[in-house]
Amino acid sequence: MEFLRPTSWGEALAAKADAPGAVPIAGGTDVMVELNFDKHRPEALLDLNRVGELATWSEEEDGRLRVGAAVPYARIIGELGGRLPGLAMAARTVGSPQIRNRGTVGGNLGAASPAGDSHPPLLAADAEIEVESAARGTRMIPAGEFYTGVKRSALAPDELIRAFHVRPAEGPQQFSKIGTRNAMVIAVCSFGLALHPSDQRIGTGIGSAAPTPRRAFEAEEYAAGELDWAGRSPLDERVARRFGELAARAAAPIDDVRGTAEYRLHALSVMARRTLTWAWKDYLNGGATACA
């Protein structure tokens, strides 16, 4: 197996163009597990750790944050927790402290597992993924179009993930995840939620309950219409409950070793109801959610 170590983004793109089968590696928290279990034998590994810019983030002119693909979860929590609270909450549930020091959102996107913890908050917050190839340059893929199947994404073989772009939270965000233990667990199912008060909209993301992470459009539209954005009146519990039901309806879970489809649907409805309740309460209190 070849081990490629580009020192710049240009070199990395060239290497990927030459060897489209090369698997990019940053923290290695997913890739190395697959290798160690002999699940994959890629022709080459493309080590991105020397491409320094991938581990940086910046504020863009359009007001969005551009977060490099190799910024680890620990830094997302520490440096961006205030502005990306939903993603930071999800990041806190990833693995152990050691894993959060190494693991990255870029890696989560690259693997495109339906159980990846980053996906629901990225979907809920309308994130876009910046990908690039040497041949065709840069393109922006909305999170909702990025995931195309179980562990499959819209990324072309010669493309690399450079960053994701996302607007800092302008309203409360929440993330909730079911696991069968209280830490270090892969999602049985998860739910991300973001309030977008300026356009009186709700964003959602469902994890681990369909072949891909996906939004619950019907639930989003329903709640956006029912919520009293201007008058800021309290959430009607029936609305919260209905929102939960609609969120679960958007999922297409299976029975597997981590849980049953029936339980996943039930849990999604509860998580959706609770997260909306918390987020709306925060909204009434006039704040965005700080990362707990």
């Binding site: 993330f175 909730s176 995840k177 209280n182």
Partner: peptide, 14 residues
């Protein structure tokens, strides 16, 4: 403190 609650930091209940 979510760590004291069922679900832990996975934030399933307050």
């Amino acid at each position: 403190d979510l760590r004291e609650l069922p679900g832990g930091v996975s934030n399933t209940t307050h």
